[in-house]
Amino acid sequence: MPSGADSSRDPDREVVLSAEGLSKRFGKREAVCGVSFDVRAGEVFGFLGPNGAGKTTTIRMLVGLARPDSGRVRIRGLDLARDFERALAHVGSIVEAPDLYKYLTGRENLLHFSRMLAPGAADRIEELAALVALAERLDDKVASYSLGMRQRLGIAQALLGNPDILILDEPANGLDPAGIREIRRLVRRLAAERGIAVFVSSHLLSEIEQMCDRVAIIHRGRTLAAAPVRELLAQVASDVVRVMARPAHRASEILAEFGPTEIEPDGAADVVATRVPPEKVPEALRRLLAAGVDVYSVERPVPSLEEIFLEITGGETV
């Protein structure tokens, strides 16, 4: 569980990155529409949304690759559009894949990007290589690196300039479980020990849940107000319960007293989906058993991002 959840809500912490009403359209399609959020020092901020929701377009606007049609990006108070060089000096980022020069070695890549930063960046190469556990392979060509190593080299590159904010776009993509764990540990460590704000995008709720303090959900180009992950999860999915029971119609009759029910046929037994407040679940189960209904399983399904979004916005169509 994230450790810094409480401190990150502390409004005294400096806002390092803020998006103010970012919008971007491609032809007729509104890719991003009025996206706003603040990321504070020392927190890991999740940016959650299904593929195609506008995540990458938003990130490209955050790092200056794309120009917003309207709205503004501020980095430590500096307007990115007006103060490009000074603003980006505080940012380290990996957008989409960790693409580095494959025909250069890891060290040559880091030297290359250190020359684009303030003097002294090259002195951090050894330390950063050790931090991302690449010290031994630093003089090998990047072409020979595994995806996980490239991701770590990408993070080392992003940290070269001693940034206040690290922007990672889908850092878990294509990594094996061990690689994902490693990245997660590294991200938490950077936030906790160095006070770096980390902005992480993902299309997987479980990813964000395990890594982030706060999360903003983006859906069809619009975001919801950022909230701590636990609050968000408590808000949704709290009362949908799927009960596998037989006979299903009997179970449905009983559960209907607790909330609206629905029968879905499912293999061996029938499944009844219902809304039962958590504190009423034991009572509902006692009633089922007393009525002679066989209960095979009770589960609380993890809602999809779409469901969460609709749940929070009250089901209104966006």
Binding site: E85, E96, Y101, Q157
Partner: peptide, 14 residues
């Protein structure tokens, strides 16, 4: 083509 443009243009250099 290598995708490195994304790093190159997000460094603090105009």
């Amino acid at each position: 083509q290598q995708g490195t443009i994304k790093i190159l243009l997000t460094r603090p250099v105009r």
